[in-house]
Every structure is written in structure tokens, then in C-alpha cells.
Deep mutational scan, measured.
Amino acid sequence: KSEISQVFEIALKRNLPVNFEVARESGPPHMKNFVTKVSVGEFVGEGEGKSKKISKKNAAIAVLEEL
């Protein structure tokens, strides 16, 4: 299972809201860097990556460590 689906499963079991959002985009158009924030109830994680998908996955990994 992907880290993102694990976050949603845990949140569902604990009845917590999940929110993913792109917090920052930086860099030139051909080499963008994304920072995504995820919140699961009061737990927050942040991930960085060269694409929105990678930064979302890294944010999920960060919040899984707290859950």
C-alpha cells in the first residue's frame, strides 16, 4: 500500500480529518520544487519533492511517523 492510502486508512479508523495542500512552489518552471503539508487531526507532516506527487508522498511518510 502507498503511504498516502495508509494515512487515509489510519485517519478513517481514528475518525480524524485529512487535508493535503501544496504549501510552496519554488524554482524555475523547468525545475520546480514543491512542499506539501498534510494534517491528520492535530498531527502535521511536511514533504518536499521535485513534483507534487513526490512531495505528497514525503508528507504522508512524515505524518505516518507521528501517527
Rank of each mutant, 00 (worst) to 15 (best):
A60W: 00
G27Q: 08
I54T: 11
A62G: 07
G47R: 03
V7R: 03
E65D: 12
V38T: 05
T36E: 04
E66G: 11
E65H: 12
A59Y: 00
S39D: 04
G49K: 00
M31C: 15
R24D: 10
K52G: 03
V7P: 02
V40T: 04
A23T: 14
S51H: 00
P29I: 09
S39G: 04
V22K: 15
K1S: 07
M31L: 11
E48P: 01
V38H: 03
L12Y: 15
I61E: 08
V44L: 10
E25P: 09
V7A: 01
K50Q: 13
E65L: 06
V63A: 08
E21V: 13
E21G: 10
L12P: 03
P17S: 14
V35I: 15
E66H: 14
F8R: 11
E46S: 12
N58T: 03
F8I: 09
E9P: 02
V63F: 01
K53Q: 09
I54Y: 03
F34P: 05
S26T: 15
R14I: 03
P28L: 08
V38W: 00
N33E: 08
A11C: 01
I54R: 08
E21K: 13
K50H: 13
G45I: 05
I54A: 12
L16D: 04
G45H: 03
N15Q: 10
A23D: 11
N33I: 11
A23V: 15
L12T: 10
F43T: 09
M31H: 15
F34Y: 15
V35S: 11
L16C: 04
R24A: 10
V22S: 12
N58D: 02
K53A: 11
K32L: 09
F43V: 10
G49L: 01
S26Y: 06
V18A: 06
V35G: 04
G27H: 07
P29K: 12
E21D: 11
K50A: 13
A60T: 05
S2G: 10
E42L: 08
S2W: 00
F43K: 07
H30Q: 11
A11L: 00
E65P: 06
E3F: 10
A11I: 00
K13N: 13
N19C: 14
S39A: 12
S5Y: 04
H30F: 07
R24L: 11
S51T: 15
H30L: 08
K32Y: 09
G45S: 10
L67P: 04
L64Y: 02
E46R: 15
R14P: 03
S51Q: 05
P29Y: 08
F43S: 08
N19M: 13
E65V: 03
S26P: 08
I61L: 12
K57V: 09
K53D: 09
N19E: 12
A60I: 05
N58F: 05
Q6K: 12
K50V: 11
N19Y: 10
R14L: 10
S39T: 15
G41Q: 00
G49E: 01
I61G: 09
E25Y: 10
E66V: 15
V44N: 10
K32R: 12
T36K: 02
S51D: 09
K1G: 10
E25Q: 14
A62T: 06
K56E: 04
E42T: 13
H30C: 09
K32I: 10
E65T: 12
K53R: 13
K56T: 05
A60K: 02
G49W: 00
A11S: 06
F8Y: 15
K57F: 01
V44H: 11
E66R: 15
E25C: 11
V38F: 06
F8S: 06
K50I: 10
K56P: 00
L64H: 03
Q6N: 04
K56W: 01
E66Y: 15
A62F: 01
K52M: 07
L16S: 03
K13F: 05
H30T: 11
F8C: 08
H30E: 13
I61C: 11
A60C: 12
Q6C: 07
F34V: 04
K53L: 08
V44S: 12
S2Q: 07
L67W: 05
S5F: 04
E3K: 09
S26Q: 07
A60R: 00
F34D: 03
A11Q: 02
E46D: 01
F20Q: 02
K37Y: 02
G47W: 00
T36D: 03
T36F: 00
A62M: 08
L16F: 05
V7C: 03
A23N: 13
A23Y: 12
E3D: 07
K13D: 07
V35L: 13
V40N: 03
V44D: 08
R14S: 07
G41C: 00
K37P: 01
E25H: 12
Q6W: 03
L67G: 05
S39H: 12
K56Q: 07
K13A: 13
V7H: 01
S55T: 01
F34K: 02
V35P: 04
E9C: 07
F20Y: 07
E66I: 15
V7D: 02
A59M: 01
E48M: 14
S55R: 00
K1Y: 09
N58S: 06
I54M: 12
I4H: 05
E3I: 14
K37T: 06
K52F: 05
V63L: 10
S55I: 02
V7K: 03
S39I: 11
S51Y: 02
S51F: 00
V7S: 02
R14D: 05
P29G: 15
N15G: 14
E9L: 06
G27I: 08
Q6R: 11
S2R: 06
P17G: 08
S39Y: 12
A11M: 00
A59I: 00
K37A: 07
A62D: 09
E46A: 10
K1L: 07
F43E: 05
G41H: 02
K53E: 13
P28F: 06
E25T: 14
I4G: 02
T36P: 02
L67Y: 00
N19G: 07
A59L: 01
K52L: 08
Q6F: 02
F20I: 11
I54L: 13
R14F: 08
E21F: 12
H30R: 12
L64F: 00
V44F: 09
L12W: 12
K13C: 07
V7L: 10
V22A: 13
I61T: 07
E46Q: 15
L16Y: 05
S39L: 08
E66F: 15
A62Y: 01
I4M: 07
N33D: 06
P29E: 13
S39N: 10
G45L: 03
R24H: 11
E25I: 10
M31K: 15
K56A: 05
I61P: 04
E46V: 15
K56L: 06
F43R: 05
K32H: 08
K56N: 06
R24Y: 08
V63I: 12
S2V: 02
K13M: 09
G49C: 00
A62W: 00
V63C: 08
E48V: 15
E46M: 14
